[in-house]
Design a protein around this nucleic acid. Structure first.
Length: 608
RNA sequence: GCCGACGUAGCUCAGUGGUAGAGCAGCUCUCUCGUAAAGAGCAGGUCACCGGUUCGAGUCCGGUCGUCGGCUCCA
């Protein structure tokens, strides 16, 4: 019952935001028409957090035009122009929109003999509605950015200019939203990566991460974690080459489907390719010896370096790169292993994301219209996936028909600080690849059988996952991942020897510790350590040296007072060994006022 | 790849056609200091790259590369 009420109120809220944002889009279109009477209008829907409208304009528009555009919109809001709905026969609409080619195309796509029209001030627009009653309530908006967008999302059709804006019922919500945008920029992994000296980029290798010592240390810790849980779950790890004769990808089918994304090179008259995925060469591993049913399920991990030739405009930070490593593994198994393998993987994903306190969403994609393999196999595989999901007790959505032609899959999406969702973990069943490589194992009945392959990754791209973690933590790594876990700060040069002695004692326990022995004041060194987000700061002066202690300050808790070195060492070592999440995940900037996230999801589901 | 914006010192950024600037970081010296910035001095630039206009280009124009925001694609 309570749930129903909540649903209803979210619905009302979604309706309100829908009307508000959709109407603001119309007001913007009206203002654009005032500025550019020849503008051709495309579509202007509400979206999560705001709205956009696509235009075909006589000249490029830029944020420099926002002042004027905003001013004209405010005028329309102040005039409180009503939104009036009319129902027109299609012929009348075609006549009216005769110089608006995109509207004409939309009219042709609408069912029935009539279309609905909304008039608001100078704008008469083809629109299904609904809208607010009049524009007076639309005062809490702002214009955000301009972007290019293809008409109907088709890259073969004209490129339009899209203006993005945001709109809220109250000034408070608008201000909060604008604040979240600023706050999100502050924790952008590209900015933090530079400030914390984690990684770099260089134009001589676009789309590649240059790992610096600090970032590489944290990255290695992350990779070690994946190695460890895989090893605990009975995975074996291999390391194969990065480039292959193209025949490998001919056989796997990648050349046919993926060639545009592959780097190829001529080697003594033969064509070689950098591998874009680990699957084909893992097939070679399986085929490298005679296999028995006793070996199954065979879980083979490979942290291979992958190269994909992304289009220049698609690159971005460490989240979208040309070379990366996946925490990839392929499980060779029989039909009867499917359920257990899927269930085991769901546990691993949940444990990992839980360890980082990350939210994620699950989506099951089922058999597409064009598929390969036997129907019965598909049905059984999908049933296994569904049952594992249900028994894991996590909510999931089903995307019917969105599976790959070679098998169904589950995708796991996590949200980054900008609210973008990234596909990280994935588990895909594959009935085709083993056949293409003619893989077999000997069954208990001495028959040769074809295994099923499961592709799976928890982080997906380690580079991307690392970037998401940086944003998630706002640069404050838990102690086990921190590049420098402790810094010893002598108060004067007198304590330098003692400081190095303390550092040595911690180093012996495997703790990453440095001594800041520069001739600077304590305050200065503390400030530097705070800025570098070092979890443990150990101040040593005359008193500490005398008593063989340190004055402890931590990033999370501030001053903690004097501590014995053994006790401190135990505390840090335990956190490292347990991989304790000893940082607060600070999400105030991610929090939406009330239920905007739910509303956003609902709007998405309705196809707004 | 497409649309748009941007590219000046290691970093953050000033510089509207007439001698390339600041803060921080770096180096040297002084200070030896008790929990988020001590002081002084020095050094640091082919203004992304290529071409054009001009007596003269960081500045104007064209191209290339890169970065960013989107679109398309996607881990």
């Amino acid at each position: 019952m309570a749930e129903q009420v909540a649903e209803k109120s979210a619905s009302n809220r979604a309706d309100e935001l829908y009307r508000l944002r959709h109407s603001t889009a119309h007001i913007m279109a009206a203002a654009v028409l005032e500025m550019f009477p020849d503008a051709k209008l495309a579509i202007g829907p509400p979206i999560k957090d705001g709205f956009y409208y696509d235009f075909d304009l006589p000249r490029p528009i830029s944020t420099e035009d926002f002042g004027q555009l905003r001013g004209r919109m405010i005028q329309l809001v102040k005039r409180d122009v009503p939104f009036e709905r009319e129902e027109w026969p299609k012929d009348k609409a075609r006549d009216f929109f005769s110089d608006q080619p995109y509207k004409l195309e939309l009219i042709d796509g609408i069912e029935g003999d009539t279309v609905s029209i909304y008039k608001s001030g100078p704008l008469t627009d083809l629109c299904a509605g609904p809208h607010v009653e009049s524009s007076g309530v639309l005062e809490n908006f702002d214009l955000l950015k301009v972007a290019g967008a293809y008409w109907r999302g088709d890259e073969n059709r004209p490129m339009l200019q899209r203006i993005y804006g945001t709109a809220w019922p109250t000034k408070k919500e608008l201000d909060h939203y604008l604040y979240t945008i600023e706050e999100a920029k502050r924790r952008d992994h590209r900015k933090l990566g530079k400030e914390l000296n984690l990684f770099d980029f260089h134009e001589l290798s676009p789309g590649s991460v240059f790992w610096k010592p600090k970032g590489w240390t944290a990255y290695r810790e992350l990779k070690n974690y994946f190695r460890q849980i895989e090893q605990q779950q009975g995975y074996i790890e291999i390391c194969n080459p990065s480039f292959y004769h193209q025949d490998l990808f001919e056989q796997s089918g990648h050349l046919e489907h993926y060639e545009d994304n592959m780097f190829t090179m001529d080697v003594h008259g033969q064509t070689y390719c950098l591998k874009p995925m680990n699957c084909p060469d893992t097939m070679l591993f399986f085929a490298s010896q005679k296999r028995s049913y006793r070996e199954l399920p065979l879980r083979v991990a490979e942290f291979g370096h992958l190269h994909r030739n992304e289009r220049p405009g698609a690159l971005g930070g460490a989240t979208r790169v040309r070379q990366f490593v996946q925490d990839d593994a392929h499980i060779f198994c029989a039909q009867e292993h499917l359920y257990d393998e899927i269930a085991l993987f769901l546990e691993m994903v949940d444990a990992t994301y839980g360890m980082f306190d990350m939210e994620y969403e699950l989506e099951l994609s089922t058999r597409p219209d064009e598929y390969l393999g036997e129907l019965a196999m598909w049905d059984e595989a999908e049933a296994s996936l569904k049952r594992a999901l249900e028994e894991a007790g996590k909510p999931f959505t089903i995307d019917e028909g969105d599976g790959a032609f070679y098998g169904p899959k589950i995708d796991f999406n996590v949200l980054d600080c900008l609210g973008r969702d990234w596909q990280c973990a994935t588990i895909q069943l594959d009935f085709q690849l083993p056949r293409r490589f003619e893989l077999t194992y000997t069954g208990a009945d001495n028959d040769e059988k074809t295994p099923i392959v499961i592709h799976r990754a928890i982080a997906g791209s380690l580079e991307r996952f690392f970037a998401i973690l940086v944003e998630h933590f706002a640069g404050v790594f838990p102690t086990w991942m921190a590049p420098i876990q402790a810094v010893v700060i002598p108060i004067t040069d007198e304590q330098n020897d003692y400081a190095f002695d303390v550092a040595d004692r911690l180093k012996q326990a495997g703790i990453r510790v440095e001594v800041d022995h520069r001739s600077e004041k304590v305050g200065y060194k503390i400030r530097e350590s705070e800025k570098q987000k070092i979890p443990y700061m150990l101040v040593v002066g005359g008193r500490e040296e005398e008593a063989d202690t340190v004055a402890l300050r931590t990033y999370q808790e501030g001053r903690r007072g004097v501590m014995e070195i053994d006790e401190l060492r135990r505390e840090i070592v335990e956190k490292i060994e347990e991989r304790t999440l000893d940082v607060e995940i600070d999400r105030p900037d991610l929090a939406q006022p009330d239920d905007a996230a739910q509303v956003g999801q609902e709007m998405e589901e309705r196809g707004y």
